[in-house]
Every structure is written in structure tokens, then in C-alpha cells.
Write a protein that binds this DNA or RNA. Structure first.
Ligand SMILES: NC(=O)c1ccc[n+]([C@@H]2O[C@H](COP(=O)([O-])OP(=O)(O)OC[C@H]3O[C@@H](n4cnc5c(N)ncnc54)[C@H](O)[C@@H]3O)[C@@H](O)[C@H]2O)c1
Ligand SMILES: NC(=O)c1ccc[n+]([C@@H]2O[C@H](COP(=O)([O-])OP(=O)(O)OC[C@H]3O[C@@H](n4cnc5c(N)ncnc54)[C@H](O)[C@@H]3O)[C@@H](O)[C@H]2O)c1
Lengths: 211, 211
DNA sequence: TTTGTAAAGTGAATTAAATCACATAAAGGG
DNA sequence: CCCTTTATGTGATTTAATTCACTTTACAAA
């Protein structure tokens, strides 16, 4: 295959495929066809084959994909053949729930540091052992802990300033939970999570389908 | 305009526009052009005009959009000219953080009931006054409280069974936080929220841009 | 070894979405 | 009252993503 632009949607689907493949592997299944995998993921079989074809040939014609190998290959494509250290900014309601959550570590994401601006929280120790640092120590701690991803769980009003601090500290990947549109330079990649947009979409569907 | 299929992406953008418009309104601005709004939302101006054109004509040529009116119109399009009662299923880490969060009510989403299966939690009262019901009382409570949306915040292993119960209870809108692909009938609309997919996307970008 | 079959890989066709570019309409000033 | 400015609304165009349909290849059974 030549040099195609890879659709972002394809990247996101790779994550979905991994989830399904890991589940199948747990069930002891060794090999799967694009057709069966597609059914499980709710997509078109050709879609799976094309998504994978952007990166190489991973299947065996007439047989299917060896699950163990495919998981490893996709993880390599996505950069998940390593762990990623994450900084949590804003240890409130949501931030502490995320840190407490055990699922991230299973996928190689490690909360390696936490930050807040509230004097009552600074210095406190979280259940998992992390100490809450002052946001002004961000740059120092990011270096020390080799952090590459920042999660913004502050109020929306602080989101842009926190993003700026992250970028100065050399963090180029941001997961933003605040309902704010943050501006970052080219080098930085931001993903936004906004539950209310999802709820709005549900509300739209319920309204238009006569419920 | 005739009868175009409306892209789902357009619906999601309407939510984004509302957020921006509400912010502008707070700043005392009355009227805005598609160009300025587009800048703020990080999209193409023609995109905004086209998205709105699916539903009618809301602007004034040569002038722009009256912000107050446009907010009202978009809310009506999305079905946000009312409140929506929500049931939280699974009052754990994440579920309780969501219930505690004040932002949903501002957008007209009300947590009207909470459910769990853990005997230690059933009957307990949450900070906001809600009592945690047993999941088996779902159908009854859904009727009593006029609930139309269910939020699944249980472990992935319980997600499908909870979804089934929601549908039997007559809930046709589901926001699913569990990392599971749930199957529902045509009449039901599901939105999935999976943070690890977003993290995977960040990892991919960091890996491929030589960081 | 040969042959039948299953399923990956892929160029072509289709479908969908985003953007352009211009005709159109409102507002304001001379 | 007309002319200029401005920004919407939209058909045409471009770009992107998905799906189809066929070719290729590996394997297994005879
Ligand atoms: N909690 C939820 O369920 C939920 C759901 C959707 C969206 N969100 C969004 O996530 C964000 C966090 O929500 P929350 O409920 O945890 O809020 P919260 O108020 O409980 O926590 C916010 C934390 O950020 C800290 N903070 C404020 N400014 C800061 C700064 N400049 N640097 C570092 N820390 C700072 C505060 O001290 C506080 O501890 C908000 O933007 C909210 O809109 C939350
Ligand atoms: N906490 C997070 O930050 C986070 C992040 C991403 C995804 N998730 C996902 O959200 C879900 C919930 O996460 P959590 O951290 O809150 O887990 P949790 O274990 O803290 O809470 C789950 C709750 O669901 C209840 N439950 C289990 N089976 C049930 C059933 N059949 N009916 C009703 N209630 C039931 C449990 O009793 C428990 O109270 C999980 O699927 C998790 O993977 C959580």
C-alpha cells in the first residue's frame, strides 16, 4: 500500500478492535476472521481489513487473524507497547474518581503525579500513594516523573491556563474533561471528553423519534 | 431546503455551538457572524451555516445571528427545551462522581433515580437526596419518576444485562460508560463514552510525531 | 500433488461530509 | 430612494470515508 492519509476514525476503531480481541483471547479463541470480528464490533468486515491495511498485512488468507499476534501488532501501531505516565490536573470529584479507577493501568496508563491549586489539598496523599503537588511545580515534576500526557479535570475557567502550563512543561498530549475549547500549538494533541454533548445527542434522538 | 439526511456530526456540533453561544451571551454580546462563531468553535464558517440550514433559517443576511434567538432555536432542535430525567445505574466511583456533579442540571439533565445491586448500598441516601434503589425495582421507579435516559456506570460484565433491563423498563436513551459493546433494538439510542480510546488516540499521536 | 475453499488484501465504486463561491437579502449612509 | 456593505443561505465542487466486488494466497483434504 502506498502513502494514504490515515483517517482518525480508523485509529479510534483500532482501539475498539483491541478491546474485542482481548475479550476473545480470554475466551481461549486463537484465530478470528474479519467477518466475525466485525460482527462483534458492529462494523463492516471490509472496514477492518482496510483499517489494518493502512499499516501492513497481519492476517493469513483463507484463515483469518491470529488474535495474539494482532493484539501485539495493533498495540505497536498505537504506541501501546510501553507504559505512559500521566499527570492529573485538578483532584476534585472527577479527577479523584479517575485516579481511583483501576482500568487505566491495565492498558498501560499510569497516573504518575497529581496537581491542584487548592491549599487544603496540596501535600495530601491519595489512596494510591500519590502526593498532590501544587500546579506551579508542574514543570519540575513532569521532568522528574517522565510524564507525557496531562489530564485536565479542573473547572472550565482554569482549563486554558492549565493547558498552557502543560505545554510549557513539555507535555504534548492532553485529555480535557473541562467543557472548554482549549487552544494549543500544532505540536500538541488534545482530545476532549464532554458527556453533555453525548446526552444532547441522546435527547435529540429521543425527541425526533417520537418518544 | 428539501429533505436531507442530517449528519450525526452536525448534531454534535450544534451542542458545541450552544456552549460557545452561551459564553458569548454571558459576555453581553447580542449578535454574531458565522465567521466569528466558527473561529471560536474551531470549525469552518460554511459548516455552521450548513448545519443550521438543515433545520431552517435562523440568521439575518448582512448582520449575523441574534445569539439569544439562536440558542433558543438550537435547544428546540436538540430537544433541550425541557428537562430530561435520568437514572444512574451503578453508584460506584464514577456514578457517584457524576451524580455529585452540578453541571448536568444546568443543561436540563436531572438525576431522578439511582440504582445498584450491592446490598450495602441499597436504601442509602446520596448527598443530593436520592435513595439508591435495587436494580430490580428499575421498571417501577422508571415509571414513577418519568425517566427517559439511563446512564450505565456498572462494570462491563453487567452492562448488557442492565441495558436489557432499561429497555424493558421503556428507557430508549442510554449513555454507557462501561467498556462494553452493548446490543440494543432499533428503537433505542446508545452513546458510548470510553476514555481509554481517547488516551489511545493521544498515545498514537505522541508515538508517530516523534515524542 | 492436486484441487476446493475460505478469507485476506485491494482497486473501483459509492456514499457521505466538508468546503467553496456566489446569488441574495437586509441595514445603513449619503 | 438608491447604492454600498456585509454576511447569510445554498447549489456546485471537492475531499474524505466506507463499502463493494474481485483477486490472491494459504491451508487442508483427497
Ligand atoms: N464530575 C463530573 O462528573 C464531571 C462530568 C463532566 C464534566 N466534568 C468537568 O470536569 C471538571 C472537573 O469537575 P469536578 O466535578 O471534578 O470539579 P471539582 O470542583 O470537584 O474539582 C476541580 C478541582 O480543580 C482544582 N483546580 C481549580 N483550578 C485549578 C488550577 N488552575 N490548577 C489546578 N487545579 C485547579 C480545584 O481545586 C478542584 O480540586 C470540570 O470542568 C467539570 O465541568 C465533570
Ligand atoms: N471510574 C472511572 O474513572 C471510570 C473511567 C472509565 C470507565 N469507567 C467504567 O465505568 C464503570 C464504573 O466504574 P466505577 O469505577 O464506578 O466502578 P465501581 O466498581 O466503583 O462501581 C460499579 C458499581 O456498579 C454496581 N453494580 C454492579 N453490577 C450491577 C448491576 N447489575 N446493576 C446495578 N449495579 C451494579 C456495583 O455494586 C458498584 O457499586 C466501569 O465499567 C468502568 O470500567 C470508569
Amino acid at each position: 500500500m502506498k502513502f494514504p492519509k490515515i483517517p482518525m476514525a480508523a485509529i479510534n476503531r483500532l482501539s475498539i478492535y483491541i478491546r474485542a480481541l482481548e475479550e476473545l483471547e480470554e475466551q481461549g479463541i486463537k484465530v478470528i476472521s474479519s467477518e466475525r470480528l466485525a460482527k462483534q464490533c458492529g462494523v463492516n468486515p471490509a472496514q477492518i481489513r482496510k483499517d489494518l491495511a493502512y499499516f501492513g498485512e497481519f492476517g493469513v488468507r483463507g484463515v483469518g487473524y491470529r488474535i495474539e499476534d494482532l493484539i501485539r501488532e495493533i498495540k505497536e501501531i498505537l504506541g501501546l507497547d510501553r507504559t505512559w505516565n500521566i499527570a492529573m490536573i485538578g483532584v476534585g470529584n472527577l479527577g479523584s474518581a479517575l485516579i481511583r479507577h483501576g482500568n487505566f493501568i491495565k492498558h498501560g496508563y499510569v497516573f504518575a503525579a497529581a496537581f491542584d491549586i487548592d491549599p487544603h489539598k496540596i501535600g495530601k496523599r491519595l489512596p494510591n500513594g500519590l502526593i498532590i503537588h501544587h500546579i506551579d511545580d508542574l514543570e519540575k515534576v513532569v521532568k522528574e516523573c517522565d510524564i507525557h500526557i496531562g489530564v485536565i479535570a479542573t473547572p472550565a475557567s482554569a482549563a486554558q491556563s492549565v493547558a498552557n502550563q502543560l505545554i510549557i512543561a513539555g507535555v504534548n498530549g492532553i485529555l480535557n474533561f473541562a467543557p472548554a475549547q482549549i487552544q494549543v500549538p500544532e505540536c500538541c494533541h488534545v482530545e476532549n471528553v464532554d458527556f453533555t454533548i453525548k446526552l444532547d445527542s441522546i435527547a435529540y434522538h429521543l425527541s425526533t423519534s417520537g418518544t
